Amino acid sequence: MTLATLSEVLQPALKEGYAVAGLVTLGWEDMRAYVAAAEAEDVPVILQAGPSCREHTPLPVLGKMFRYLAEAAHVPVVAHLDHGYTAEECRIAIDSGFTSVMYDGSRSPLAENIADTAAIADMAHAAGVSCEGEIGFVGYAGGENSAGTDPDEAAEFARETGVDAMAISVGNVHLQQDKSGGLDLARIRAIEAITNIPLVIHGGSGVPMDQRRTLSRGSAVCKFNIGTELRMAFGAALRAAVDSDPDRFDRVSILRDTHDPIVAATRSVLKGFKGA
């Protein structure tokens, strides 16, 4: 069994100069492909259940799915709650077997975010589970605008909450469908100069590949969340599978054809986070 906590995979990444992918899952087909890709590349992987995933499948079911995959894998697999918005949601995830929870209080005032995140980190640590927090707000493509992370606030947040990883807002945007953006390297350097915690980039699909590689090897950024990029690959594979035989109606047969393309797309993503 290679079930791991977030801290267990990020601390080695911080020390040795690589990053771990937090892959946003929506169902069995993609999470199974993600683990297969991680095994092929011989790297750890973080399976993430975000809000849209949880709308479709309850947390207790997702916990069992993640743990089942981890038990059969030969690489470390983290079962991670992504963007938990309440203490109760984080508690249910912990009770459901998740090994890591991310509490998102980034829309709250600093003092409230610190207090709420610290309480959830304490709850998680008491259960042997890791906790990720967010300081600064990461916006959405075509939606809410970002509010960049203030380095001094980030240092206070890391110190006062006791989180195992800290998500920051440094030019990254959720749901970005291309890699035309780029991160604010000066802000990242300012944050890592006064903190000693693994940093997390949400909205990693919008980060250019060369910048992913550079930061993975030479910064405190140890986790990139990748969702949109792989959802697009899944959608293309599913569309091709459906169109290949208009008379085919069995969804198991159709979905089986998505596996290899998703494994290939995921392996391409994972290669970019490996060390030198």
Rank of each mutant, 00 (worst) to 15 (best):
V242K: 12
R159D: 14
R239A: 15
P109T: 01
H56Y: 13
L62G: 01
R189K: 14
A154H: 08
A264F: 10
L14R: 15
V45T: 05
E229V: 01
Y68W: 12
A121N: 06
I201Y: 02
D178T: 13
P44E: 07
V129S: 02
P76V: 14
V269W: 09
V200M: 04
T99C: 07
A119L: 08
A241H: 06
R107N: 11
Q11M: 13
D30F: 01
A115R: 08
L69D: 13
Y140I: 10
V200G: 03
L69W: 02
L62C: 00
E112M: 09
F224P: 03
P246L: 10
M1E: 07
V20C: 04
R213N: 01
I120R: 04
D150E: 10
F66Q: 05
A141Y: 06
R248K: 15
V20E: 04
A19H: 00
P76Y: 11
D122H: 09
Y18E: 11
A240D: 15
S96H: 08
N145F: 06
Y85H: 15
R107A: 13
H259A: 15
S106H: 07
L14T: 10
T5G: 13
V61E: 11
V207I: 12
A79H: 04
F224K: 05
D247N: 13
A155I: 04
R159G: 08
G204N: 00
K64D: 05
Y18R: 09
R212M: 15
T86G: 14
I168Q: 11
S205Q: 10
G105W: 02
G17W: 07
P12W: 09
E16S: 10
P151G: 04
D257K: 07
C53E: 00
